[in-house]
């Protein structure tokens, strides 16, 4: 992804959060999520505090609430599952809004909803304040195998190309009057997938040849090493450390 080709997940900005080195942010988000997951679910106020912490980060990063909430829609499928839980879990029953629900089920639903939502919100904040390329640099910095980082970078770089190819095929199908209505049309969709695979694979071969002809030997040269100062680490770790404090309080209180 060259200059000016920011992904739609990324929200351009110059806030302190945007400026943090990517690997610090990755560590901070991971630490935060781990802390959230290991918090006892009975400590309701702890989750409220986590949400406040995330809101503070969003405010510092100048990510508007609407943007964040829109991206939270990804978790709708498991919200549906969580809402079902009070009805299917056996145990002590109670009345809530005129419905008979089970107490362990309610706790379970709350557990999944709260922790899942906080995790999704943290990831969304990370993705919207960090460019894809620097995210990959951060992963490499965190000692992810270089080959894996390369594969991921190729996937991201060509993901949009391949998706567009799929979209063009879909437009071509529709312009010829095709609409997938049922099982009988699976064959057409499968031929699309087959054609897409061949196109992707052949493109991969061409890319590889192009790289070899430019001196590729199996490893990518690191041209911009990202480094982090102690202050930046401290700044990034404020979030998980504060969360850890909340978590410890949640266990003791």
């Amino acid at each position: 992804m060259g200059a000016g080709h920011a992904h739609r997940l990324y929200r351009h900005g110059h806030s302190p959060v945007h400026r943090l080195p990517p690997h610090c942010k990755l560590v901070a988000v991971l630490g935060f999520v781990v802390v959230v997951v290991s918090t006892p679910r009975e400590a309701l106020w702890a989750f409220a505090l986590y949400a406040v912490l995330l809101a503070a980060v969003a405010a510092v990063a100048r990510v508007p609430a609407g943007f964040l909430l829109k991206r939270l829609a990804i978790e709708v499928p498991f919200v549906a599952f969580a809402l079902l839980m009070p009805f299917v879990v056996p145990g002590e029953q109670t009345e809530l809004l005129g419905l008979t629900v089970s107490v362990p089920g309610l706790w379970g639903a709350w557990n999944v909803l709260a922790k899942g939502t906080l995790g999704v919100a943290a990831s969304v904040l990370l993705a919207s304040t960090t460019e894809l390329r620097s995210l990959l640099l951060g992963l490499q910095r965190l000692r992810l195998p270089p080959l894996l980082v390369q594969i991921a970078s190729f996937m991201l770089r060509y993901g949009d190309v391949i998706t567009d190819e799929l979209r063009r095929m879909s437009i071509a199908r529709r312009s010829r009057g095709f609409e997938a209505r049922g099982v009988r049309h699976w064959g057409v969709l499968a031929k699309t997938a087959g054609a897409l695979f061949i196109r992707s694979y052949e493109r991969g071969e061409r890319v590889h040849l192009a790289m070899v002809s430019r001196g590729y030997t199996g490893t990518m040269p690191v041209i911009d090493e990202v480094t982090a100062s102690r202050a930046q680490w401290a700044y990034a770790c404020a979030l998980p450390v504060l969360a850890l404090g909340v978590c410890l309080l949640g266990w003791t209180v």
Partner: peptide
């Protein structure tokens, strides 16, 4: 055979794209 990074990356992109291919069930 040595072409791991570009080919695996492109195949991953393919899988990513093909997961968007919705097929109608009844």
């Amino acid at each position: 055979d040595g072409r791991t990074a570009p080919l695996a990356g492109l195949v991953a992109a393919f899988i990513f794209a093909v997961q968007m291919l919705n097929f109608p069930v009844a």
